[in-house]
């Protein structure tokens, strides 16, 4: 059965089409219209796979924009989709830490991607991609420039959890002539701390997977490992985990 899964996030919209054992994937910025982004993804996926729209049995949609997208045959929460996606990629994983553009979550999973428990932070920007976005701007960088390089051993710890205060804190640090590398490392540690606290509260069971847009940031990955005291697995397609789960459910695999 041919199925499409779409994850309409606050920053990016991701899609995967599954046809038997063949998969194609695509990503576009969500921009102002989740509906347009969803449509663009469907067009790209059909293009890439050479499949006609009528051949697609189900389109399952997840992510914060899921309710705005009328073409969905079904909407599913990110939580279930992440659990299903990870079960496919790493069946041994029991804890998923997902940091997206505007929220972060921790999901405890059992066998076959069954959700056992979850916690979510979507009230406050601290510990989300949004926090890093704001800080990158304050540092005069693009968010993709954070977390690429080896970071210095000494990080400047950022004490404010609140995005607004943290921003003025790093402006102060810059003004006092501190180097950006140390500040960036401090920011990553701040995100790691915040999310690790949420994970510990729920109980961490290995193995641990790190998903979502922020997972490509090596600095946050390192900080997270340090805070929770174990290795985390990051898939090369970490941003697609939710879309993969939705696509698997849509194609009833």
């Amino acid at each position: 059965m041919i199925g499409i899964g779409i994850d309409i996030g606050s920053v990016a919209t991701k899609g995967i089409i599954i046809n038997g054992d063949k998969q194609c994937r695509a990503m576009v910025p969500t921009g102002w219209s989740p509906r347009d982004a969803g449509q663009a993804i469907i067009d790209q996926l059909l293009d890439l796979s050479g499949i006609e729209r009528q051949e697609v049995e189900h389109i399952f949609v997840t992510g914060y924009g899921r309710v705005a997208f009328e073409q969905a045959d079904k909407t599913i929460t990110e939580i279930k989709c992440h659990a299903r996606g990870i079960a496919e990629l790493y069946p041994e994983v029991r804890t998923i830490i997902d940091i997206g553009g505007q929220d972060s979550k921790v999901i405890r999973v059992g066998e076959e991607g069954r959700v056992l428990d979850f916690a979510m932070n979507d009230k406050c920007a601290a510990g989300t991609g949004r926090f890093l976005q704001v800080m990158a701007t304050a540092l005069g960088l693009d968010v993709s420039e954070l977390g690429q390089s080896e970071e210095p051993a000494r990080n400047l710890s950022i004490s404010s959890m609140c995005t607004v205060f943290a921003e003025s804190e790093i402006i102060g640090l810059l003004a006092r002539g501190n180097d950006k590398g140390g500040i960036i490392a401090g920011l990553h540690q701040s995100v790691g701390k915040r999310v690790a606290a949420m994970a510990r509260r729920m109980g961490i069971k290995e193995q641990v997977a790190f998903t979502g847009g922020v997972a490509i940031n090596l600095g946050v990955k390192r900080a997270l490992e340090e805070e929770i005291g174990c290795m985390v697995i990051v898939s090369e397609a970490c941003q697609y985990t939710g879309a993969l789960g939705a696509a698997l459910l849509a194609s009833q695999l």
Partner: peptide
């Protein structure tokens, strides 16, 4: 059984975030 702890107030500002949590619990 699944257990969902929600913290909220009387406003409607968090309807979406309540909804996603309740939905995920029901999926369980």
């Amino acid at each position: 059984l699944p257990y969902l702890h929600l913290e909220s107030d009387y406003s409607n500002s968090d309807l979406e975030s309540l909804k996603v949590r309740i939905e995920a619990m029901l999926e369980m």
